[in-house]
Design a protein around this nucleic acid. Structure first.
Lengths: 156, 156
DNA sequence: TATTGTTATACTCTATAACTATA
DNA sequence: TATAGTTATAGAGTATAACAATA
């Protein structure tokens, strides 16, 4: 049963179950974020990188932990962003081994424009909902996001 | 403000707005699907490919349309799945140019095991919800998924 | 002419292993 | 010894352009 993208409507007849509905919604929003980023030549992972750096500077290992990537993957990711002038590497004043990755002014502007674009498109997606529905959806989504988040798959 | 992954909780103090909640939920479920697929050495895009083929066979262009990929990208994607024995290419009886991609029995078994794994993990994510909350969430998510889905970003 | 599919090419993204430099 | 980061390498995934075969 489903788990497919099915962009043009439901191939199925019956209503979606919880798992399918959440997975398909996740794919849909992922596509929206990807398309919004594409307007600024940003991939989803680059958007997430800039999003983290909007709030704080961080080292490579820490960024990798937040993004779920190996430190060696971070080298290329940050390097490409740096080559575009979006971020800078500065030596850490506390640790001679570490670098601090920070957003440049241009990187910050781009991150903001991109976030705005994502906001417009996701807001458009929820336009058909009533205020009450939107509030309930937000509360439910937020509660899942901030839940203990045991993604290990082990029984619990 | 956010749009980051923030796996360990909310760096923010206030409650999430609708856009951030949906985007973060999307990333969370994407991670869950990716981790579940990883148990079977399947990427998210391979999972989606097999998911489509569970319901029907299809040509390369049609698959690319459903997955949002160029036909040239499909060649490699299907080729790797075929090399693993998960799918087969058969010549279309109606169109000499076209091939029909179909799931092998082994591919179908793997797709089912993977879907089960995803089901377990997403279900675990929603374990903290009451039955009523889960029903409302499912209805709201399903309504967004089956909405007109204007992802273009143009004003509407 | 239009469509289906592949190939050639180039790039992003990712991990593993080995390495340097610092702690 | 342990940690931060880079490099080398290999592979998946993706798009563009050019191509062959069929419609």
């Amino acid at each position: 049963m489903t788990l497919e993208s099915d962009p043009s409507g439901l191939a199925d007849d019956g209503p979606l179950n919880t798992v399918d509905a959440l997975v398909q919604l996740s794919f849909l929003i992922h596509r929206i974020v990807s398309a919004a980023g594409g307007e600024h030549d940003l991939s989803v992972i680059q958007i997430r990188l800039l999003g983290i750096l909007r709030d704080r500077q961080a080292g490579m290992v820490e960024l990798g932990r937040d993004l779920g990537l190996d430190k060696s993957s971070m080298t290329g990711l940050v390097g490409r962003a740096q080559k575009r002038g979006l971020v800078e590497r500065t030596p850490s004043p506390y640790d001679g081994r570490a670098v601090l990755v920070t957003l440049t002014p241009g990187g910050r502007r781009l991150a903001e424009r991109c976030a705005d674009e994502i906001g417009r498109r996701v807001t458009a997606l929820t336009e058909g909902l009533s205020d009450g529905q939107r509030i309930r959806l937000t509360e439910l989504a937020a509660s899942l996001v901030s839940a203990p988040a045991d993604v290990s798959g082990q029984a619990g």
